[in-house]
Amino acid sequence: MTLPDLSEYRPHKVVTDVDLEGVVVPGLSATFHRRAAGSRVRTVGVYRYAGVELFMAWGYVGEPHCRFTALRRSDGSWGPPRPGCPPVAKARDGGRVTALTINGHVLPTAPGRPPAVPRGRADPGVPPPAPVTP
């Protein structure tokens, strides 16, 4: 399995304040690309927060979940494709989700919270660190 070559896709749309695992993350944006594949349409989403690419997810239009995901490494390269959606950890305060952690980046889920900052070296072979509840 190789990463999708975005030069073979056409831009489709940009979504801001993306809903990830049922949680809206202010400032998380995704650029979606599409291309025909016989009777189906392939799609790739590249997700960014605070100007930093975090992950790429792809599959086919109409599928309920990501078919594959690649995480952006701290050196700027893409990690290997892995099946499914990106690993996401939720930080909670009581019953409310206050942040998501993806590949070492903490993404606050409430407006007005400080921007995400890397928590140590991101390694796509290691699950994200447990989030800290503010």
Rank of each mutant, 00 (worst) to 15 (best):
R10E: 14
P11N: 06
V15S: 09
T16V: 14
D17T: 12
D19E: 14
G22T: 10
V24Y: 02
V24K: 13
P26E: 05
T31K: 11
F32I: 03
F32Y: 15
R35T: 11
A36P: 11
G38L: 05
G38S: 07
R40D: 14
R40M: 14
V41M: 02
V41S: 06
R42S: 15
V44I: 10
V44W: 03
V46K: 01
V46N: 01
R48W: 09
R48L: 12
E53Q: 15
L54I: 13
F55K: 01
A57I: 12
G62P: 06
P64F: 04
P64V: 02
F68E: 13
T69H: 06
L71W: 00
R73Y: 04
S74T: 05
D75E: 09
G76K: 07
S77F: 03
G79E: 07
R82D: 09
P83R: 14
G84S: 04
G84T: 04
P86A: 12
K90M: 13
R92N: 10
D93P: 00
D93L: 11
R96T: 15
V97R: 01
T101Y: 01
I102R: 00
G104W: 00
P108E: 04
A110P: 00
V117A: 15
R121H: 10
G125D: 11
P129M: 05
P134I: 04
